[in-house]
Design a protein around this nucleic acid. Sequence first.
DNA 1: CAACACAAAACTGTCGACAGTCGACAATTT
DNA 2: AAATTGTCGACTGTCGACAGTTTTGTGTTG
Lengths: 238, 238
Amino acid sequence: MRLASKPVGLPAIASHDLVSQIARALTDAIIAGRLAPGAKVAEAAIARELGVSRAPVREAARLLESQGLLVAIPSRGFFVRTHAPADIDDLYDLRICIEKHAAVQAAARLTPEGRIALRRQLDVLYETAATNDPARQVEEDYRFHRLICEMSGNRRLLRLFDDLASELRIVIGLIGRLYDDPHRIAQTHEPLLESIENGDTAHILAAFEYHLTDPWRGVAQLVATLATARSKPTEPTA
Amino acid sequence: MRLASKPVGLPAIASHDLVSQIARALTDAIIAGRLAPGAKVAEAAIARELGVSRAPVREAARLLESQGLLVAIPSRGFFVRTHAPADIDDLYDLRICIEKHAAVQAAARLTPEGRIALRRQLDVLYETAATNDPARQVEEDYRFHRLICEMSGNRRLLRLFDDLASELRIVIGLIGRLYDDPHRIAQTHEPLLESIENGDTAHILAAFEYHLTDPWRGVAQLVATLATARSKPTEPTA
DNA sequence: CAACACAAAACTGTCGACAGTCGACAATTT
DNA sequence: AAATTGTCGACTGTCGACAGTTTTGTGTTG
């Protein structure tokens, strides 16, 4: 008799993959600000703190470097990337470019389910606006935009968006502080959803151009002032 | 018998910065087809062949993974990425998106020097069309498009373009074989340059949309047939 | 007191080694 | 004979160590 010939519902063992775990730990530390921009990421220190050897730490660092969170300077090690205002502009410019494209594609292949999913996520955004949890609000905001990229059907584009987001997340937390009213943030997403449901390309492009660039002006200014405020040249990005 | 220990024609490595050198060696091998899609990249074998230890090979492999040239399967190692036709479509779609944006930006900040540089590169393209050196032709074609991205002023965009290009280069060589006449390829770039000099956004978008998607249809078809031809499932992309 | 030279410390880049894991193949059972 | 289990070889993931380089700290000199 065939005892175990059928799946019995065992969850896959989480691969105790050190590298990705370390990468996440570092990412968290960077986002949380415990590793400040420009700070040196000493392999030995990290390895000691995590109780592992340097090899996986190095690989994790390279991973984060490819994501733009760290920069490697030969023979000197890894440093938390300092974003010059121009860099952030570039990043955001790229994000807009990507997301507009995604939105157009998503609209072209919009299904009833997709429409519902977008609406739902937007509702979630309203809900979290009620709570006083800025981190959550940023997260749900991100997920709305990510959902659009997902619905573009272009998986490579989605991956790119995630990469850009991990870079932007360091900065994007600032956006939430621009408006005191998170409810208004949710509202600004309405035209986006509307334009996708509408389906007109020019309409979509305009809506996203506006929604994305408008709040950005404030952030850019804020970043610029912050940059000049602590005008301590930490690490040259070049 | 060693499985993947057959020499792949990698030149021995001498001096500093092993990782990037190894990365380039591997990239070349992949582009040249000496490392076929789906092939296993055995660390030990590569390390032995290059006369280095496994550590820098691993890091180089991770670098290429982040560029999408390799895929890592836990506990099984790195494999040359097999591009499903859909993946390549995604890639190309993204490239078009990026480059259109770059072209618009480049046009907006076009300087006399920039205009000359573009014209020069296009002339080079004509010159290489005279030679019978397909590799060089592809290279100069790439540099024309890269120049546009460079002139967008967005350095992050340029980096992304380079990443996409390294992925596409595996496939893009095929484009050259579509036209027997490389001179015609150069000619198809004229409208692009023209549109940038002109400066009208809609004009630019249309020109690039056409120039980029048109030859792509042929490539996509070719790739599809190739994919079905050798329908040997090597490595799952997922 | 400042600036320079020099030595010690710390760190990175690379290496060889070991243990755990995976795939292939042989042995065994139904 | 088909399917399952056991065994073996190869390879990955991780580690500790060493050499070369950068940084730090210190003492000396103008």
